[in-house]
Design a protein around this nucleic acid. Structure first.
Lengths: 246, 246
DNA sequence: GATTGCCGGTTTGTCCGACAATCATACGAT
DNA sequence: ATCGTATGATTGTCGGACAAACCGGCAATC
């Protein structure tokens, strides 16, 4: 007799409306690209005020289920973009005081198998994208800003080669969290760039040769290098990651 | 001269307000548990109408950055709950027509290293939770509903033992997507339960002994078993996962 | 023929004012 | 000390309003 009654909770109308529309999107009654009726019409159909509909739309919008296509007024149904979803995850992790160590450890676990899987599933097109990303990093000696981004892009291109959306999406928040610390590291550790270039080349070659073992081990080495770089740069691994306003 | 001008984009006021409040939360000016001022006060401070503030609040709310504590009117700042964040990811993946195969493959890559890491990092408390989850699954021969949930709970408890929030959060969407198919599988494959029980026990024992290899390999076996189960149950691995309205 | 200017109808973004229901709190009665 | 009540604050929802932006079509112009 711990608790006799369940807590009774009222759901405000705006959430019911959001759930109703969201449900239709999830079950594909509303398909991607379909345009939602105007707000006044929705208000009429649901029998609520337009303000209520608008609150519901904001909820759907920030869930990425609907968005306004550029230069159009009507909301249209969209599949949430990977980047946006991962952004929410990233925010969540930041709020939970995630540390560099946790991110690095997750990369250690996740990236080598991803590389291995990519070695199996990659197509010629994937390979082109991957090598292009590696070459861009190698040739672009410009701002560290760009270098950090370029490194993350390499991981993304490898992830894409797995043709597995779940993996790509699992990987994305890690990359978003990695980038800021990478900026500091690349700046403070002179040999970082060349080591990254080497690792990227080795991984690319392994993927080219469909060498699963090579891809996995070089990727593992690549990630281990990051840690060394962090230590050399004097970045405290237990430090909480902050976000630098994007 | 591909494009001379960047697209100029207007940001509506409700999004600016949301960004302003959200920024304060992310940079910890507003801490968890802090209560937001009432809507009228926010409207006054930002110089906008209360309706506009409300739309902004809906956005923050569905991002999990603020919520109303039970039986309170004022919004308070919260860290997004893992389950909620993962829910958004799950929705996103469903919208992207993710297949059973992709989920299973991701589990294959992710779970064994998680088990290995758990074998290293687990505390006595973690172990208690894990074995409790395993025992609950073994003794609870009730509805398949519960069994599927119990299996997912086992993975969660192992994930928690890594003490790595990034891993837990990466794992969560997989479990949410796994559950529905697990329900079907456990129903249709008679030997599924006993095989799951065995695998859970073996993994638990390995974690107990801090046997990293054992934990990894048994977890890998556990996941491979799922695939066999799916095949026996005649579940098409390439089938898109749908969500059964929660 | 293609571009430009203009027009009316829609739709959104934002505002204002309003009210019932709920919550917080203090105060007084038992 | 517990309970009921009054009072004020706050939210959820409503109705109505208006400017700005978008859409489609049509006429005028080069």
């Amino acid at each position: 007799m711990n608790r006799q009654f369940d807590q009774i909770q009222m759901e405000p109308a705006y959430r019911k409306v959001a759930a109703a529309i969201g449900g239709r999107i999830l079950d594909r009654t509303l398909r991607e690209g379909d345009r939602l009726p105007p707000e006044t019409e929705l208000a009429r159909q649901f029998g609520v005020n337009r303000s209520t509909v608008r609150e519901a739309l904001r909820e759907l919008e920030s869930n990425g289920l609907v968005m306004r296509r550029a230069g159009s007024k009507l909301m249209s149904v969209t599949r949430p973009q990977h980047f946006a979803i991962a952004g929410a995850v990233t925010r969540g992790l930041v709020m939970h005081d995630v540390t560099f160590r946790e991110v690095w450890e997750a990369l250690t676990l996740l990236e080598p198998p991803i590389a291995e899987s990519a070695a199996r599933a990659r197509t010629a097109d994937d390979l082109a994208v991957i090598t292009a990303a590696a070459e861009r990093f190698a040739s672009d000696n410009a701002a560290t800003e760009k270098a950090a981004h370029g490194s993350a892009e390499f991981f993304r291109s490898v992830g894409a080669a797995t043709h597995n959306q779940v993996l790509m999406l699992a990987q994305e928040p890690l990359l978003q969290l990695l980038e800021p610390s990478l900026r500091v590291m690349i700046d403070d550790v002179p040999q970082a760039r060349s080591r990254i270039i080497t690792a990227q080349r080795k991984v690319s070659e392994a993927l080219h040769a469909r060498d699963t073992d090579g891809a996995r081990t070089w990727m593992a080495k690549h990630i281990r290098d990051f840690r060394k770089g962090f230590e050399i740069a004097g970045i405290d691994l237990e430090h909480r990651i902050r976000v630098g306003e994007s």
